[in-house]
Design a protein around this nucleic acid. Structure first.
Lengths: 187, 187
DNA sequence: GTCTATAGACCGATAGAC
DNA sequence: GTCTATCGGTCTATAGAC
């Protein structure tokens, strides 16, 4: 895997493009963040950029995966706390929240490059949460009458829905609402 | 307001366009539902259609308002029941759910024609739900420790988030999940 | 008032030269 | 690996016929 110069340079360039794209989107928002604009910010032509990522959707999907990796590496252990912390952090980068929301809707099409990513992301998130809820029920810290799978799906849904409300009206305090909801799960 | 022939005809044409657009979107989905396609389905040129609605976004916003009117007229009285019924019905028209989700994200831009619509829609929905929760707490049918405003915001958010999960994976049973969530609010 | 036709701007995608 | 040039598609705007 430790490729030679040319290969390694390609990888590095991809990383550089992703970092710049993340900046541009976080600053200018998703709207108007065209491939051309990002390409110019990196110092490439539009076609030059699309050499590294086959299409606009693939580029933006890669940005998403990258953000997810960063979020995951920041995780502290308790998924309930992590979720609230991620949501709180998201309030500071509305452009990225917009990109995420936008792509999650567009990826409904099975042909979309990010379709698999979102399917797996939701499945993994729901499983992790359900396991955490079961553990909490076992040690008596969470209410016993909850259905772990259903509660997990609804917590994930609420987090997404709160982001939509936040995008429309930035005064919505996503983290506070989500915290209150999670508090309500406790015994 | 009872205009003469020409005016009334314009109104009727608008209604006809909205009805056809609703059909096309429900059938073909939002993706690929271009102004041209809808115009041809009505028997108009693209520019002919845009004479009635200033832009694509305005047209789609009008479709949304129309759907909302239909939903509202179907309401039976109890907002909690109505919400579940609307969500259940939505599972049968994924194209419309897609349109709704897509526009609600795009409308985050304050310049978007549907921005005000969504702001008001969420505010109204949250108020109505909060009032219903307060009433339920007064008569002892809903849990007393809930914060009515927060619970209302979270229920709305969950409904939206479940729609996003449903669009990605149609096997997700939105109505069942939402019903379970609402059950959990009861005393 | 209503509609057709057309033109311009922008975008993403692709071909092919270097 | 990067560029220029170009293509097809979408939205918007407008001039002018009816």
């Amino acid at each position: 895997m430790a490729g030679r110069g040319a290969y390694a340079k390609g990888i590095a360039k991809r990383e550089e493009i992703l970092a710049v794209a993340l900046e541009v989107i976080a600053r200018n928002g998703y709207r108007g963040a065209s491939v051309r604009e990002i390409a110019e910010a990196v110092g490439l032509s539009q076609a030059g950029l699309l050499h590294y990522f086959g299409s606009k959707d693939e580029l933006f999907t890669a940005v998403l995966v990258k953000r997810d990796e960063v979020d995951t590496s920041d995780a502290m252990g308790d998924i309930l706390d992590d979720l609230v912390r991620i949501v709180a952090h998201n309030a500071e980068v509305p452009g990225l929240v917009h990109l995420f929301a936008h792509l999650s809707i567009e990826a409904a099409d099975p042909e979309h490059p990010a379709h698999g990513f979102f399917i797996e992301r939701y499945a993994h998130l729901r499983e992790t949460l359900a396991a955490r809820i079961r553990a909490g029920q076992a040690d008596g810290s969470l209410r016993a009458e909850l259905d772990p799978e259903r509660a997990a799906a609804v917590v994930v849904a609420a987090a997404d829905g709160l982001q939509a409300q936040f995008l429309l009206d930035p005064s919505v305090d996503m983290a506070a609402e989500l915290t209150a909801m999670i508090e309500d799960l406790r015994a």
